[in-house]
Design a protein around this nucleic acid. Sequence first.
DNA 1: TTGTAGGCGTTATCAC
DNA 2: GTGATAACGCCTACAA
Lengths: 340, 340
Amino acid sequence: MRPLPDRKPTIKQVAERAGVSIKTVSRVLNNERYVAVESRQRVEEAMRSLAFQPSQAARALAGKKSHQIALICDNPSPYYIYEVQAGVRARCIEQNVRMIAQPYSINSASLHDEIDSLIVQTNPDGLILTPPITDNKSIIADLRRREINFVCMSPEALSPDTSAAYIDNAAAAAVMVGHLIAVGHRRIGLIAGHPDYATSRQRSAGYRQALTDANLALDPALIKIGQFTFKSGSEAAAELLALPDPPSAIFASSDDMAAGALATAHRLGLSVPHDVSIAGFDDTALAEVVWPPLTTIRQPTRAIAYAAADLLFAQSDGIEHRKIDFDLIIRGSTAPFKSK
Amino acid sequence: MRPLPDRKPTIKQVAERAGVSIKTVSRVLNNERYVAVESRQRVEEAMRSLAFQPSQAARALAGKKSHQIALICDNPSPYYIYEVQAGVRARCIEQNVRMIAQPYSINSASLHDEIDSLIVQTNPDGLILTPPITDNKSIIADLRRREINFVCMSPEALSPDTSAAYIDNAAAAAVMVGHLIAVGHRRIGLIAGHPDYATSRQRSAGYRQALTDANLALDPALIKIGQFTFKSGSEAAAELLALPDPPSAIFASSDDMAAGALATAHRLGLSVPHDVSIAGFDDTALAEVVWPPLTTIRQPTRAIAYAAADLLFAQSDGIEHRKIDFDLIIRGSTAPFKSK
DNA sequence: TTGTAGGCGTTATCAC
DNA sequence: GTGATAACGCCTACAA
């Protein structure tokens, strides 16, 4: 167990121990150029032996950078938030920057004010936004007026003056549905997410595109709206499976809803994928752990979050849109068995 | 849309506008006594009209308090973390204190160092710990040496010199199992959590106590160890239900495992609760939303987190252990139907 | 009840 | 390459 120093060591003490000026220590701390190799070594040695850690507050007060970024999360899915926090944090650790993560509740009428106050009070070096805030015109406009750096995760539309990390949701959904068609399904149900979310609309569009590409008619009865929750997926599946002419496959546009659909199938005594195939979008690796028979599009949320943080740190290099790859993960057969 | 001030207003500007000294503004800001009502009003008015927000960094640097607390989470369950963050944050907003929430991964060998560095760099006014860090002797000892305030959520054992918020896990498990016995079950399976977690041990103890109280023999074959995950619960249930003399009820000591057990029952074509009753501990409101037929002990994680933050802010009043109530939530019948 | 002076630990500026 | 010196915005201590 290390001995605890009597007082928190300061730059001054490091400077004295290394026999250089305060400013030189500061240079080493901030990785500036123009420090003699020898000086640098002496300073680093002194820092180590004193277990020196710079004061966040002092750096933020004196300098232009606060060495903190804020992650603005306003999303009802715990799994999603967890993955996002993990991804951003991983990149922050590499950069030696602190992450301020505050989950907001979408119902908070004061969201705008809270973000405002977060920015003014803590002066973060940048922000990372997640859906649906990425599409909040008013908040985005405010950030621009403040001239603060920010990066969007999976925004509805790519803007030429905002960096973003995302996957192509429409293409992914089309790949998934295209696969189901390829293995023989003709009636494919869709459990769509709430239309307020751009992600939902994109995935629904991909579903429609795949049908069109295969010259299949779109049956409105096969489309149900969910809320991205297990419960809504479960209910939507029940409605679909109760149709006079039920689908042979169901595509759910989020993992929670897919899990709900699967539970419903089980509850109804249907065997998956024998009686009905269930496919889904896996935003959070939920399906991977939980539902072996589920075929999914794996969206690497953590990787998107990591990329977003990376873009933030590289923002001075200009606006960039980084597309992250998705995977089609086929678990078991997805072909229809039941003769209809 | 409010106009954006040219520069961030400082105390000095507020003071000039209100016609008082800087110190008086500071007094108002910190709710100190000895400020004339009239002065206070003038200052508040000035603050409002300038949209003044104090600088976190400057306050932390100059004062003894940093107006931030840190939430140390090192837990693999996204739902749990979500609830904890929500609870702590709610109390922080009331207190006008910022929450630094950083999820650590339990595998991080450098956990100790990271917490160290968090404390030294950001100088938080206090910490909130969640399991299993609450039981990490080495980390706890370090916090004590630093003389930093902290509160534990659901620690293994209550310590006379550490404040804590918790529920009585053993009693809760005993209530649940006692209920199953009361409605007629004689063979009750247990899906225990990993024995490294105090919570698991406490819940398992409650299970045993309830059997003892009812003069029922404990059959070791009916106890399976899970990992608090859906998958492990699912597997454990499969083993239990494959026994020559399977249980008529299964008690899972976490929500994810209970959900897994339920999925297994469905997959095996068993009707719940007709063929087998499933009961569980609901740490995160998962069961409430997701699994209507599940009877559970509802652990109000969010309330515990809120209470922990409350204790932290009241810490000067001395050590306190606050026990939070749990609820036995019976959904549908839990009585055994199957003749065995 | 109010104000003045000094300093918190770091970075920015500018000379050397 | 390096080092004085002045900020940064607020709080503490003390005086009035």
